[in-house]
Every structure is written in structure tokens, then in C-alpha cells.
């Protein structure tokens, strides 16, 4: 008896807290993966672009909005909102970049830089929410249909084929005609639609590889239930790939949003697509105007291109972490 209590105290010292050890292990794995990721130039480039945009949207904009763009800071005439308000101090709009408006104003006298920064956090939110929904659905459906096979598998795979063939943008246009689409509903629609599409097929094929590994049989021999195997064995093994596709999906979501708001189909206050839409409907992106009024379309266009590219580059960098074959040795 004395022996056993002694043994217990001895081992309790070793097992101070298994969760702490788990966190340490995760940190170690993260450091290792970070080392691989940081070696890929393209991934780091993407990460830096995303960081710059994130800082601009989440830090710089609130500061600027509460200081120099404060409603009363400009001649206290009317409450001036740089995103939607009209600057009466400027006679002709759109005005080219000046000290008061670093990126100029749009045809409605609104500050381009303010619009750009205001939209940034929303673009991030849209992209990430849509991508999270996509990946969550894709992982779940992919693993379930790989694991059970048969009718479930056939149903979801044919559904995925259907969604893949689906004209995505026209569908969104029709939807936006039927209901008021704001940013959150758009994220939901994009997430749901692409969650049943291509990502499901990719993750299913990965899950099929994991499913036949002996460690699954080993768990079955111990009496593991199907949900236990899916959650504890299959999903952790396809998680890196899910994460990778999440990055590519952020790109897709932001791009779809830009397209839709360019057509003026979204019920949102401001977005990069909407900025180009404003310039376009006022006739400033036609003929020679396109060169003259470059500040109307170049900043939002650049922002869309850069952020979409950046998330794609991060995905490429992660690809090297996930697929050891791509690493340069």
C-alpha cells in the first residue's frame, strides 16, 4: 500500500499537467512549421501584405477616424463623415490627391483613403467567415462521405459535381435580386456554396487515404465508435490540408464580393468593389478618363489584387509545410 502511494506521488510529479505538455508540444510543432514556412519567400511576402492590410484596417483606421477624420475637425460646418460624407471645402469632385485627401476624393466628394481603410476589416471578416464555413463543411462532409461510403458518399459527391458546375457569380446575382444581401449573408452564401463543392472532393480523397491506415483498424479493435474515429483520427490527419484550402477560399470569397459589389448588387455601406462601382457608374472609367482619374479605381483595385494574392501566397507557403515533397532540400 505504501508502495503504491509512493508510486502515485512520483508519477503525479511527472504528470504535473498533461495539458500544459500538450500546449508545449503544439508550440514546438508550430515553431517547426513556422521555420519551414518562413523559408518560403512567397509565403512570407503574402504574410507581410496581409499584416500590412490588417494593421491599416484594424489599427490605423480607428486612430485616423478618431483624430483627423473626426466629424467636427473640418470647419465644423456640417458633421462630416469621410466615408460617406461630402467635403464642401473642395469645389470640384472628384479631386486629385492632395494633403487634405491623400488619395483624392470620389465623384461624391468622399475620401478615397478613408473608404479604403474602412473597408479593409470588413473584407477580412467576409473572407475569413466564408472560408471558415467552407472548410468546416468541406471537412465534415468530406470525412463523413469517405468514411461511410455508399449512398452518403454518392449523394455528396454528385452534389459536389453539381456545385462545381454551378455558375457561381450568376447565381449570386440572382440571389441578390431576390433578397437583400449584406456582408454576413454573402459570407454565409459563399461559405455554404463552396463548402459543398470542390473542397469536399479534395478532402474526401485525403480522408480516403487516411481511412485505410492500420491505425484506424487499431482504434476499431479497441472498440472505437465511428464518430470517435472521424473526430480523433481522420480529421486531425486532414486538418493541415483543410487549413491550406481555407487560405485559398479567403481569396475566392473576397473576389466574389468585389465582383458583386462592382455590379452594385450588395446592400453594404462601403467596400472595395463598391468604390470601383461608384467610379464606373459616374462615368470615370471610360475612354481617356481611366488615365486621368486613376485614383478612383487604382487604390481599391490594387487592394483587391494584393489581398487576394497575399492569401493565395500564404496558401502556397503553407503548401510547402503540408506537402513535404514540395520542400527544397
Amino acid at each position: 500500500m505504501a508502495n503504491t502511494t509512493e508510486g502515485m506521488t512520483a508519477s503525479s510529479e511527472i504528470f504535473e499537467s498533461p495539458f500544459k505538455i500538450k500546449v508545449k508540444l503544439m508550440w514546438r510543432a508550430f515553431k517547426e512549421n513556422w521555420r519551414i514556412f518562413s523559408e518560403s519567400k512567397i509565403g512570407m511576402l503574402g504574410l507581410w501584405i496581409v499584416i500590412i492590410f490588417a494593421v491599416a484596417g484594424f489599427v490605423v483606421y480607428p486612430i485616423l477616424a478618431s483624430t483627423i477624420w473626426k466629424s467636427t475637425s473640418l470647419n465644423a460646418m456640417v458633421s462630416y463623415n469621410p466615408v460617406t460624407g461630402y467635403d464642401f471645402t473642395i469645389a470640384n469632385n472628384p479631386a486629385p490627391p492632395s494633403l487634405a485627401h491623400l488619395l483624392g476624393t470620389d465623384p461624391l466628394g468622399r475620401d478615397i483613403l478613408a473608404q479604403l481603410l474602412y473597408s479593409t476589416p470588413r473584407e477580412f471578416a467576409l473572407g475569413i467567415i466564408a472560408a471558415l464555413i467552407t472548410v468546416f463543411l468541406g471537412t465534415l462532409i468530406g470525412t463523413v462521405s469517405a468514411f461511410y461510403g455508399g449512398v452518403v458518399d454518392t449523394f455528396f459527391m454528385r452534389l459536389a459535381d453539381l456545385v462545381l458546375l454551378f455558375p457561381f457569380i450568376p447565381f449570386l446575382i440572382v440571389i441578390s435580386g431576390m433578397m437583400q444581401v449584406n456582408l454576413l449573408t454573402l459570407a454565409l452564401i459563399i461559405g455554404l456554396l463552396s463548402g459543398f463543392g470542390g473542397i469536399t472532393i479534395i478532402l474526401r480523397s485525403q480522408a480516403m487515404i487516411v481511412k485505410v491506415k492500420p491505425f484506424i483498424e487499431s482504434a476499431k479493435v479497441s472498440g472505437a465508435s465511428d464518430p470517435y474515429i472521424i473526430v480523433n483520427h481522420i480529421i486531425p490527419n486532414i486538418m493541415p490540408l483543410s487549413f491550406l484550402y481555407m487560405m485559398f477560399n479567403v481569396t475566392g470569397a473576397i473576389f466574389s464580393e468585389a465582383v458583386l459589389s462592382f455590379f452594385g448588387l450588395l446592400n453594404i455601406r462601403m467596400s472595395w468593389g463598391l468604390m470601383i462601382y461608384t467610379a464606373d457608374t459616374a462615368g470615370y472609367i471610360v475612354g481617356t478618363n481611366i488615365g486621368t482619374y486613376w485614383w478612383l479605381w487604382l487604390p481599391p483595385g490594387m487592394a483587391i489584387t494584393l489581398i487576394c494574392g497575399a492569401f493565395y501566397f500564404i496558401g502556397r507557403g503553407l503548401d510547402e509545410v503540408v506537402n513535404p515533397r514540395l520542400r527544397r532540400r
Binding site: E217, S218, S222, G223, N237
Partner: peptide, 22 residues
């Protein structure tokens, strides 16, 4: 099932595949 799986076990051929790498 619980009773049976608690009392029977299997050792697999390939030690590289029968342990979950994660």
C-alpha cells in the same frame, strides 16, 4: 461490443502505419 473489444486486441504488421502520426 464494449465487453468484447475490452478483452481482445490486435498487433499490426507495420509499426510505421499502425500508430497515428499526429
Amino acid at each position: 461490443r464494449k465487453w468484447f473489444h475490452g478483452k481482445s486486441q490486435m498487433i499490426f504488421q507495420d509499426p510505421f502505419e499502425s500508430l497515428n502520426p499526429r
